[in-house]
Structures are given as C-alpha cells and as structure tokens.
Design a protein around this nucleic acid. Structure first.
Lengths: 334, 334
DNA sequence: TTGTATGCGTTATCAC
DNA sequence: GTGATAACGCATACAA
C-alpha cells in the first residue's frame, strides 16, 4: 500500500505538504496540489483507514450482533442496516450469537476495544430467557451506545426499534373475528418464551377477550420438522370446530395450510390461516397464506440511522420507535 | 477507554513496563506483573485494537461481499464464515452488493485500505453477466487475497470454493431416470444466466443425453410471484406427459408442487419433483419435495479457513475446493 | 506556501 | 528488572 511518506519521498516534499494537498488545504499551491494528486492517483494511494481511525479515535464502524442470520427476518434487517450504514459511510462488523448468551457477551466484549463506535443488536434467546443482560448494561456504561431492535430488554434504557407485536396480532385477530366471521381461532406458538412471542400472544388473547371468545393455544415447544407437522395435524383432527389458525412465526402457518389440505379441510372457506411472513412467504403456499408482514428492512434502516445519530450526538435522549407491520391478506379473502 | 499510559501513570511506572507486564514478559518481576494486572482488570483495560492493527499492519478482519443475504443460501454461507472466522480470531465486515457491479466494486475499493486482510466473495449477478471483473483482478494484484465461492470467475486465478453444480444435477437427473423410471423430465430455470445456472443445466442435459432422452427446459426469465405460478401451471396443463420436474433454484420446485396439486396431479406417483433446498425447505411442502441440499454452512467454513490460510502464507498455491451436495429424497420415494 | 514537530496507543529495541 | 525511544500512517498546530 502506498503511503504519504512514499509520495513525499518521490516528490521531494514533506509528508505534511502531501497530506494537506490531498485534503485540498488552501495553504497549498495549485501547482503542488496537482502534482501530488496526480501521483497519488497514479499509485492508487488510499489513506490507511486504521491510521485515520487511531488519529480520530473513531472507527466509523458499527457492530451488529444478531441471534442468527438464517432466519429471514434477521437477514432482511441486516440488509436494511447495511444499506443505511453504507449510506452514512459506516462499515458493519457482523457477529452471530447463535442465540447463546456466551457468544453474545463475547462479541460485545471483543468489539468494545475501539473496533466499533456502537452496537445494533437483537438479544439472544438465552440471554432473554435467563434474564442475563449485565454485559449489555456494561457496554452502555462504558459509553458505547447500544441500540436494540425487535427483542429488547425493557429494564435497559437505550434506543430501541421495535415491531408492533401486540397491536399487529390484535388487529389480525380482530380481522378474523369481524371480517371473516371466525369464532374458534387457534393460536400456534413455538416462541412463547421470547419477549416478542409473549406480546403476540397477549395481542391475540386481548382481542378474543374483547369479543368474548375463548383463547386456544397450541404450544409446539420447539418441535422440529415432522413433529411440527404431526402436532398440528393431530390437533386439527381432534378439534374439528377450529375455523381459523393464527401462527405467530413464519413457518408453522404454512405447515398448517399443508396439514389442513391433507385432512381435506376447505381453505379458505372453512378455515382461515394467518401467519407471520416475509417478502416471498406467500409464494410458498397455495392457497396463499395471509401474513403479518413485518417491515424488517425498514427496521434495519431505522436502527442504523438512529444509532448513527446517537454516535454523533451522545446527548440525544433514548427513543423507542415502533415500526408498524402490514396485514397482507391472501387473495382469496381480499 | 483505559490506556497503557493511564495505567502507567497510576502505578508510577513506565508505559513499556506496563506493556511488558501485561504480555507476560519474563523481564518483569512477579511483583509488578501482579500489580499491573490487578489494576488492568480493575479498570477493565483492553488493548486498543486499532493501535495494535496499525502496529502490526494486520487488521485480523475479513471482508465478506455477498450479492444478498436474504437468499437462504448466502445466509447460511455467512453463518459458516462467521463461525470459522470467530474460531480463528478474525472479525468479518459484511458488504452486500445487491447483485450490482458498482456496489461490489465500491465495497472492494473502500475496504482495500487496510480495513481487511482479505476478501471472501460471491460475484454479483451483474458483474458476471457483463463479464466485468477488473476490480477483482485489481484487488488481487494489490496483494490482497480474494477467495471466491459459488459464483466464481474462471479467468481469475485465486482460491475458490465451489459447489458440484454439474455433478449434483447430473446425479439427481440420473436418479429420476433410473430409480424413479421417469422419462419426461422438465427443468425449470430462472437463473440460466449465472455460472451456476449454466452448470446445472449442463448436468441435466448431459444426463438426458446419456440416457437418450429429450431435454425440456422452461425458462422463467426472472418472473416473480404470480407469474411464476402461472407459467408453471400453464406449462403443466399443456404438457400432461411430464412425469418429473427438476427445479434448479430453491423456490420454483415448491411452487411446482403446489401447482401440480392444484391440477389434481398425483404426487409422487405420477410426478416427481426435485429442487434445490436448505435446512428447512422440505418442511414447506406436502408431500415433501426432494432436494439437492448444498452444504452452504460448510462452504462458508471452508472459505474462511482457506482464506485465512492464504493470509498467513501468501505463497500457497491457489486451490479449488469442491463441496459435494447431498440428494435428500422426499420420504415418499425413499 | 512549505516544512517540522507532535501525538493517537501499542509494541519492540535498546540502554541503563 | 525497568525505562526511554522509535515506529506504524495520518493529521494538524506551529514554525519558518
């Protein structure tokens, strides 16, 4: 890599003159400025980022700690973060906690050494379940701003970007009751221990309460693959009166459609199905599933923007931004 | 952040003594070593990474440039990269090209300033279509190692980790012909312009040739959503003799299953369907789709490992590693 | 207009 | 066993 020193040597001038010339200082003569820039271009000079960072004590980098990236929600959030960060000239360092507390903690600590100017994170499942978030508090106390999205810790005061988990499920449930005239709505859950899961279940329960209906919840308890299919299938077989299913994740709704079809249940006439989903979820089932579409991309963008604002102005009061979801109905019931 | 200087001042000793003590130099007395370490722990001292990087001229960071991360394949590769990198004490900076040439080029250039010690990338669709890869060559010439995975540029000599695109599709096709006795196998394609798409189509074509069968290809031409469904549905309606469908991506196979069911075609008795897929793809259709499962996670791990080897030993000859895929049959035809 | 000196935080060399 | 000094590459206050 070409350095200022090398340029200076070749041009027989001092390093500082070269530096100033490249930074368009008015102190430097037109002549040398041009000479310097020409040589710099020719040798493909690029200021060493590390040196600049050491000098300014800013890394212009954001640490992004995600539970996983194979979950499409987080993947899309990451996309949003990357776009917004790039726009503001920030790099992102990505760490995956794999839902574990120790990896989350480790990542936070490893990057808290000047590597990043702040963090964007969604709390790992384990940290949330064990209510162990001291590492996050410690990071904030060390003056490194942290922004949480989606899965947040209420007791920690910092910027947050969250989804309207309660409201979106309430609205979807209400839609099923009022617009589609459903009375026996089953909620299928496999994330009841997460903060978001709890909120979604609350939204469902409240809506049923408000309309004097009885809640009915099928907890899958982290079942995988065939178990998911079997549990849903068995439940549908044993409870024929169910006329709507509300899945609070992005997979079990589709599984429910497939199982219902297998049992010969007429969708959408006899059974409505709503799940959570992403850009292409609706393409994966026929008839199409109705989805609560979280604006994951937007969540990412806003998170990055808010954190960067916070980095550039430490005195800003912490804010919590709610990004509303959108209910996208299957065409059949539109 | 606590610095060596601060520790030194508090202990009334020199900076270099502190540094040596923390690095367990044998020059330092047991006594001071302990005193220094105690204070360091107490003040939560962490060596400033930026300063270390400047000193060693190594960033211990890998630049990862992906076309997108919402495609599950790339998400899983990223997961693999992150794990392997973390294991070797490397950070990763992630950039998304969004399949565009200019963003890919920009990312490569922006990070080629000391920010990273090397790159892992899958070439953007646009770069591949326009055959414009000078920016990649330039990076390699500037002594920054680049590793390409999945989508590679043949004319560039560097480490590569690829999938057995040709062979896996050949094998799957052969399986359909020999084991499932299929004769009219339709290939559904929406990525024929990518290097991987071409290879997959070649594998299919060659297999049919070898068994004296006629290739039949439905190009979707980047259709989205309803168009995909419609095109596949129409084709199936007009060509009732088709007894197997081979999708070379991870979505259209599932769409094909749904359409065939809609048309009342008996799966898997009258029609076999094979697609590409990831961990949870098979859960998304009923009956389950057979998939060619690319070991995306492994691709990521191997890529990171190979690049890091290359970073630590520039003289290693470039290698190309082929990661074999696995044909996962739907249970019904197992 | 140009050059010199200093410092960012760390480590390594050398002297005491 | 400890400390002073230089160096990584850059930016800037200050001197000429």
């Amino acid at each position: 890599m070409t350095t200022l020193k090398e340029l200076a040597a070749l041009l027989n001038i001092s390093v500082s003159t070269v530096s100033k010339a490249l930074n368009d200082s008015h102190e430097i003569s037109e002549n040398t400025r041009v000479r310097v820039k020409e040589l710099a271009t020719k040798l493909n000079y690029k200021p060493n980022r590390i040196a600049q960072q050491l000098k300014t004590n800013k890394s212009k980098t954001i640490g992004v700690i995600l539970p996983t990236v194979t979950n499409p929600f987080f993947a899309e959030v990451l996309h949003g973060i990357e776009m917004a960060a790039t726009n503001s000239d920030y790099d992102i360092i990505v760490c995956l906690s794999n839902e574990t507390l120790h990896k989350e903690k480790r990542s936070l600590e490893l990057l808290s050494n000047g590597s990043v100017d702040g963090f964007i994170m969604a709390v790992a499942r384990e940290s949330q379940v064990k209510k162990n978030t001291d590492h996050i508090k410690a990071t904030i106390e060390s003056k490194l701003p942290v922004l949480m999205f989606d899965r947040v810790v209420n007791s920690i005061e910092c910027n947050k970007v969250i989804v309207d988990d309660f409201q979106s499920v309430y609205d979807a449930t209400e839609h099923l009751i009022v617009k589609e005239q459903r009375k026996n709505i089953l909620l299928v859950s496999n994330i009841e221990e997460l903060s978001v899961g709890k909120l979604r279940i609350q939204g469902y329960t409240k809506a049923l309460e408000d309309y004097n209906l009885k809640p009915e919840i099928l907890k899958l308890d982290h079942a995988v693959d065939f178990d998911v299919e079997k549990k849903i299938c068995d439940y549908l077989k044993a409870n024929r009166s169910i006329d709507a299913i509300l899945s609070i994740d992005h997979v079990t709704g589709i599984v429910a459609i497939n199982m219902a079809k297998k049992l010969g249940i007429d969708i959408p006439k006899k059974l409505s199905i709503v799940g959570f989903g992403y850009e292409h979820t609706q393409l994966l089932s026929s008839p199409r599933i109705s989805i609560i579409h979280q604006k994951a991309h937007k969540i990412g963008e806003m998170s990055a923007q808010l954190l960067i604002d916070n980095i550039n102005n430490e005195d800003l009061k912490p804010r919590t931004i709610v990004v509303p979801s959108e209910l996208k109905l299957s065409d059949s019931v539109k």
